[in-house]
């Protein structure tokens, strides 16, 4: 859609987009370009004498068992977080859409985690589950579970999945609730008159109507789990123990900033960019029908 009424002039609009374009070029496009350049070069141990190595950095990455394990771990992480967060958001939204007392309070409490920083969510969960002093640690120990996520990789991975989902349920809840509320009441009442209730009504009526929301959220949650959980994982486990909770974004940081492997980290950046471009295109396709009026 375009406007019919316009203002004349060329210099003014160019001047108005300039600040945004300048920041975009300097801090987004230029670094992205540099990542491409770095990804085909290798630097010696002193950070001098970079030379062109073609796709060697990529070949080294794809040939390394650690990187492949990281990719698989990221896949597992994204699937688990997305499934948990979306199912949680959907169930809560379906019940919050009913006319019950105190639903304003329930809603307020349920969207609370949206406002909490991912890194701070991790701090709270460290407090709850820290191996020595955590409140829940005591409960788990009494139940006979040897809880120590600092030592046991599987527990650490489970924990970052749970906290990742905990943080994201609020977002899905908001979208599912908005989706449910946009369904015309008359439609729901008509279905009720026909005797459609409970699970049957959900399965045959609400779920199909929520499908566009579900597809949209599927992409958004995957992007969230893959890219926006760096702070959460890094603050909670730092990627450890070992590499037990190292997802792809955590590995880029560890390899680039901590291990100073610039070429390898740049090649990983390029792979991540390809991934997020693909996901964003998907997102626009699914949201497109609704946005482009």
């Amino acid at each position: 859609m375009e406007r019919r009424t316009l203002f004349p002039g060329r210099a003014l609009p160019a001047f108005l987009v300039l600040p945004q374009l300048a920041i975009t070029a300097l801090f987004f496009l230029f670094p992205a370009w540099r990542a491409f350049v770095e990804s085909v070069r290798a630097v010696n141990g002193f950070g001098l004498n970079a030379r062109f190595v073609g796709l060697a950095n990529f070949a080294a990455l794809l040939g390394s068992g650690t990187y492949r394990a990281t990719v698989l771990r990221t896949l597992l992480y994204c699937t688990a977080v997305t499934a948990l967060a979306m199912a949680g958001g959907l169930v809560l939204a379906v019940f919050a859409d009913r006319e019950i007392k105190g639903r304003a309070i329930y809603r307020a409490l349920l969207i609370l985690p949206y406002a909490i920083a991912p890194a701070i969510a991790s701090v709270i969960f460290v407090f709850l589950l820290q191996p020595e002093i955590g409140l829940l640690t005591g409960v788990l120990k009494q139940a006979g579970i040897d809880w120590n996520y600092v030592l046991h990789g599987g527990q650490a991975l489970g924990l970052v999945i749970l906290v990742g989902a905990w943080k994201q349920v609020a977002y899905n809840f908001i979208f599912y609730l908005a989706g449910l509320q946009s369904i015309p009441r008359t439609l729901i009442e008509a279905a009720a008159l026909d005797g459609a209730r409970g699970w049957y009504r959900f399965r045959t009526m609400l779920w199909p109507l929520l499908l566009p929301t579900t597809l949209f959220l599927l992409v958004v949650n995957t992007v969230y789990a893959a890219f926006d959980t760096f702070a959460l994982i890094f603050a909670l486990t730092g990627g450890g123990p070992g590499t037990a909770t190292e997802t792809m974004v955590v590995k880029v940081y560890r390899d680039g900033i901590i291990n100073l492997d610039l070429g390898g980290s740049a090649a990983q950046s390029v792979i991540l960019m390809a991934l997020i471009v693909a996901l964003t295109v998907l997102q626009f396709r699914y949201a497109g029908g609704r946005e482009r009026t």
């Binding site: 670094p31 992205a32 880029v252 900033i257």
Partner: peptide
């Protein structure tokens, strides 16, 4: 489109070069 591209370039994927800039 240049502005839209920023959607696809979160800090997480361009850590080192952004730091360099």
């Amino acid at each position: 489109w240049a502005i839209l591209l920023t959607l696809m370039l979160p800090v997480e994927v361009r850590i080192i070069p952004t730091y360099a800039v």
